[in-house]
């Protein structure tokens, strides 16, 4: 199964259960580029114990903008930093910046809790095309399995060619059962089946994949609403999480995506993927500021361990690399 050349698969679970070298280390590795860009420079811009002047702020603004933080969130961070610098006077600029950034991110760092009285807990992944929904669910399934949950996968992406096969392959690799119908079948019906099947099997969690869809396509958003309506009608109504999966390299459009998906089906959390490139994922600041939706996980690498619960301090620390 893993005899696929010397390179380990991007999407494949690890061949052996590699133990990670700690959350912060892994985050730093994933975010190293951001750190290089942001952190080092804060140090360069303002010597420890020095004053934050306008030139330093402008440079900092450039750095934040280049991390996709966006104009509004960048101004908010800088205003906050100015205010803190004015009050604290001689505080370390790095500490002040860290605090200013945490003000935005700390409130949205809420881990996902899958405990429920009405098992199974349902997690549905939604998002635009190519953000990594199926891969995220595969990894999440392995995580939940490892924390002793009975997991069932539901192949709700009935649209994209071979999406069902992709999830089934994840099922094989992780040893998790997969509920699937044929290509082109009704996504709501797949999810409905999976929840009932999960009840019959005593599953703790059902992970439902959905087809990638651009938020501008009304008919596809309508389909998503139907999936939700169907879940809502199941007696007793299951508790569920609707995760919006966002590619860390996405620019300011991520905000529009989040708003549109939220309006269509009511999001309850966000996953930020592909932080292992040079993309900095600064869009989480804009998302946190505008929508305040909990950020549940981030993907910082190819291995299953690299899907991490989102932790604001680690995230900011990795950015600031103290």
């Amino acid at each position: 199964m893993f005899s696929k050349g010397s390179k380990q698969s991007n999407d494949a679970p690890p061949a052996a259960a590699e133990k990670s070298g700690g959350l912060l280390k892994s985050l730093k590795r994933g975010l190293s580029k951001t750190r290089d860009l942001l952190l080092t420079d804060v140090g360069d811009l303002v010597p420890r114990g020095g004053k934050i002047d306008e030139a330093a702020l402008e440079e900092l603004e450039n750095r934040l903008l280049q991390a996709d933080v966006g104009i509004d969130a960048t101004s908010a961070i800088l205003d906050n930093l100015r205010e803190r610098a004015r009050k604290a006077g001689d505080g370390d600029p790095g500490d002040l910046l860290r605090a200013a950034m945490l003000d935005i991110l700390a409130p949205v760092a809420q881990p996902l809790d899958v405990s429920t009285a009405n098992k199974p807990f349902v997690i549905m992944a939604v998002g635009v095309n190519g953000v990594g929904k199926t891969t995220t669910l595969g990894k999440l399934g392995a995580h939940l399995r490892d924390s002793h949950h009975k997991v069932l996968l539901a192949a709700g992406d009935t649209f994209r060619a071979a999406a069902i096969e992709q999830l089934q392959e994840w099922g094989e690799r992780t040893g998790l059962p997969v509920i699937a119908q044929s290509h082109g079948s009704d996504a709501a019906s797949v999810v409905f089946d999976a929840i009932h099947s999960g009840r019959a099997r005593g599953s703790d969690v059902v992970l439902a994949d959905t087809a990638g869809r651009l938020h501008t396509k009304d008919y596809l958003m309508t389909e998503l609403k139907k999936v939700r309506r169907v879940i809502d009608k199941i007696e007793p109504r299951p508790d569920y999480e609707v995760l919006l999966v966002i590619d860390a390299s996405t620019g300011q459009n991520a905000l529009v995506q989040a708003k549109e998906f939220h309006q269509a089906i009511g999001l309850t959390g966000i996953v930020l993927t592909k932080l292992d490139g040079t993309a900095r994922g600064g869009i989480v600041f804009a998302l946190a500021q505008n929508l305040g939706l909990p950020i549940r996980y981030i993907g910082v690498g190819e291995r299953i361990e690299d899907l991490r619960p989102f932790d604001a301090e680690s995230f900011v620390d990795a950015l600031l690399a103290q």
Partner: peptide, 14 residues
Amino acid sequence: DVYRPAAIDQLHAY
């Protein structure tokens, strides 16, 4: 694309 699960199937189906 020998890496992503079912990527080859996807091209064939399309």
